[in-house]
Amino acid sequence: MQSHRFIAVGKALAALALSLVVLTAMFAPAAAGEVRFGKNVRIGGHDFSNQTYDSKHRARIYLYNGKPRKEGCVWRKDGHGGRVKVCHLQRK
């Protein structure tokens, strides 16, 4: 009888520990990363070599099968102190 009680307590503690790990992972901030494109990097046939993007300098690239209305790339403010490179490009 005593061993069954210890097993039940052990399972309850394991479930509690697992739920704490899951909650910690949910509320932990995302890791800050940086993407550096090296030599000969092409996106949709367009050259994006030697460019660096992080949380303050981001890129949003739209690829179209036909000719886009506003073709090319422009830098825009993102409203949070950073900049976003918005590109409307035709696939080559």
Rank of each mutant, 00 (worst) to 15 (best):
M1Q: 04
Q2L: 10
S3P: 06
S3R: 13
S3A: 14
H4F: 06
R5M: 04
R5Y: 13
F6Y: 02
I7M: 09
I7A: 08
I7V: 11
A8K: 10
V9R: 09
V9M: 10
G10P: 13
G10Y: 15
K11V: 09
K11H: 09
K11P: 08
A12F: 11
L13N: 05
A14F: 09
A15Y: 14
L16C: 04
L16T: 08
A17H: 05
A17D: 07
A17P: 10
A17V: 03
L18K: 05
L20K: 07
V21H: 11
V21Q: 11
V22K: 03
V22C: 00
L23D: 14
A25N: 04
A25Y: 02
F27G: 09
A31P: 05
A32H: 08
A32W: 06
G33E: 05
V35F: 03
V35H: 10
R36W: 08
R36Q: 14
R36F: 14
G38D: 06
N40E: 01
V41G: 04
R42P: 08
I43V: 05
G44I: 00
G44P: 02
G44K: 01
H46P: 00
H46G: 02
H46W: 12
H46F: 12
D47R: 02
F48P: 00
S49E: 03
S49V: 06
S49G: 03
N50P: 07
N50R: 12
T52C: 03
Y53W: 05
Y53S: 05
Y53V: 03
Y53Q: 06
D54V: 07
S55I: 07
S55N: 03
S55W: 08
K56A: 13
K56H: 13
K56Q: 13
H57T: 05
A59N: 00
A59I: 11
A59S: 01
Y62K: 15
Y62M: 15
Y62S: 15
L63R: 02
L63E: 00
L63M: 00
Y64P: 00
N65D: 11
N65P: 14
G66P: 10
G66L: 09
P68G: 00
R69I: 15
K70I: 06
E71H: 09
C73W: 03
C73R: 05
R76V: 12
R76Q: 10
K77A: 02
K77S: 03
K77Q: 09
K77E: 13
D78N: 12
D78E: 12
D78V: 11
G79Y: 13
H80S: 14
H80T: 10
G81C: 03
G81N: 04
G81M: 02
G81I: 02
G82R: 13
G82N: 07
G82M: 08
R83M: 11
V84L: 01
K85S: 02
K85G: 09
V86Y: 15
V86C: 07
V86W: 15
V86S: 05
C87V: 05
L89D: 01
R91L: 12
R91M: 15
K92S: 15
